[in-house]
Computed example of a mutant assay.
Amino acid sequence: MASDDQPVPVFPKPVTLRDVAAQAGVSVATASKALNDQGRMTAETRERIRETARNLGFRPNSLAQSLLRRRSFTVGLLTNDTYGRFSLPLMSGISDALVDAGVSVFLCNVEEDPRLGQLHVEAMLDKRVDGIIATGKRIDRHLPIDLANLRIPVIYAFTQPDPDAVAFVSDDAGGARLAVDHFCRLGRKRIAHVSGPASFAVVHERAQAYRAALIENGLPLIEPLLGAWSEAWGHEAVTILFDGGGEKPDAVFCGNDQIARGVIDALRERGLSVPGDVGVIGFDNWEIVAEATRPPLTSVDMNLTALGREAGLTLLSLVGGKPAAPGIRKLPCRLVVRQSCGRLPDG
C-alpha cells in the first residue's frame, strides 16, 4: 500500500525564450529573430543562439507560432471505418505526405452517428485544424455529417464526396481488368466472377469491367454471382459454379479476399487443386488474409496508401492557397501476384 508521505515528483520548468536569450547574451527580440530565421545579424551570432537553444532543450511555443502564422499545423481525418481496414492505410499515406511539412494528423471515428460526427467536426474547428480529410468504408456512401461550407479545405478519399469537392478513389474497373487480363495471359479460358452485394456500386463497376474484358479476349461470359462479402458466400458460390450444368470454370475472380479464401477452401474440399485445376484472384490485398491463405492469394491492391498520400498533398496545396479542380480522381490499382493463380506458360 502506498505511503501518504511519498515524495511528489517535481518536473523541471520548460525552457523559455528568455532563458535562451540570457544564456546567449542577447536580447529576447534578437533570440526570437535568430530562431525564426529573421532579422539582420551575423551568421555566427545566429548559429550561436541556435546552438544555445539546442543545448538547453528549448522548444518553440507551438500555440504562439500557430497564432502568428494563422495555422495549427494539424489535419483532421474523419471516418466511419470502425475496423480501420481502409482508413488506416489511408492515414499512413496521409501522414507520409504531411510529416515533412510539420503537419500532424488526428483520427476521429464518427461511426454512423450524425451527432457524434458533428461533435468531432466542431472540436476540429475549435482546434483550428488547417483542413479535414473524410474517408469511409465504401465509396458510394457519404459520411453522416455535413462538411460543406466549413471555410477550411475538405478532401474526400474513399468515400462519396460533396458536389464540387475534390475526391480520390481507386479505379475499381481498372483493378478488375488487371485480374481478368492476368488470367488470360495465364491461358485460362473460363473465368468466373464471384462478388459482393448488389447494393455496392463497386460490385457493378467491377462486374461491368469483367464482362468487357472477357468479350475483348473472346472468352465465354459467365454471369457474375453476387452475394455477401464473406468466406461463407465464396464457399457457397463454388457449389453453384461446379454443381450446375455446362463447363466448369478454370479461374475465379473474387470481389474481395474473404470470398476468395472461401472459394479456395471449397475447391480443396472437392479435390481440386489451386492453382493447378482452378486459379483464384481476390481483391483488396488484405495482407493478413491473402498471405495466410493456402496457397497465398494473388489479389488486386487498391493502393490506399498512395491514395492517402495524394489526398494529403492536395490538402497541403489547398491550405497553401493553391486551387485544385473539383471532381473525382481515380488512382490505378496494382496486381500483387502470389501462388493462387498459377504461372505464365513460359514459367
Results as ranks from 00 to 15, higher is better:
48 R>D: 14
48 R>M: 08
48 R>W: 05
48 R>F: 05
49 I>N: 00
49 I>H: 03
49 I>K: 05
49 I>G: 01
50 R>F: 09
51 E>A: 13
51 E>W: 10
51 E>S: 15
51 E>L: 06
51 E>R: 12
51 E>G: 15
51 E>F: 10
51 E>Q: 15
52 T>G: 02
52 T>V: 07
53 A>V: 06
53 A>T: 12
53 A>S: 12
53 A>Q: 14
54 R>G: 12
54 R>K: 14
54 R>T: 15
54 R>F: 10
54 R>V: 11
54 R>N: 14
55 N>L: 02
55 N>M: 08
55 N>V: 05
55 N>Q: 04
55 N>K: 10
55 N>I: 04
55 N>G: 03
55 N>W: 00
55 N>R: 12
56 L>K: 06
56 L>F: 11
56 L>V: 01
56 L>H: 11
57 G>W: 13
57 G>Y: 12
57 G>Q: 13
57 G>T: 13
57 G>M: 15
58 F>M: 02
58 F>W: 13
59 R>D: 09
59 R>I: 00
59 R>H: 12
59 R>E: 12
60 P>S: 09
60 P>G: 08
60 P>L: 08
61 N>G: 02
61 N>P: 10
61 N>R: 04
61 N>D: 02
62 S>C: 05
62 S>H: 11
62 S>L: 07
62 S>V: 02
62 S>P: 15
63 L>K: 01
63 L>R: 03
63 L>N: 00
63 L>A: 05
63 L>I: 02
63 L>D: 00
64 A>N: 08
64 A>S: 14
64 A>E: 07
64 A>D: 09
64 A>T: 03
65 Q>K: 05
65 Q>W: 04
66 S>K: 02
66 S>G: 13
66 S>I: 03
67 L>Y: 03
67 L>P: 15
67 L>D: 06
67 L>A: 00
68 L>S: 03
68 L>C: 06
68 L>V: 03
68 L>N: 00
68 L>E: 09
68 L>T: 04
69 R>K: 12
69 R>A: 13
69 R>P: 09
69 R>G: 14
69 R>D: 13
70 R>H: 11
70 R>A: 13
70 R>I: 08
71 R>T: 02
71 R>D: 04
71 R>V: 00
71 R>F: 03
71 R>G: 05
71 R>E: 04
72 S>A: 12
72 S>D: 11
72 S>E: 09
73 F>L: 01
74 T>C: 04
74 T>L: 06
75 V>G: 02
75 V>A: 03
76 G>D: 13
76 G>Q: 13
76 G>I: 09
76 G>S: 10
77 L>T: 06
77 L>V: 01
77 L>R: 13
77 L>K: 12
78 L>W: 14
78 L>I: 12
78 L>A: 07
78 L>T: 13
78 L>D: 15
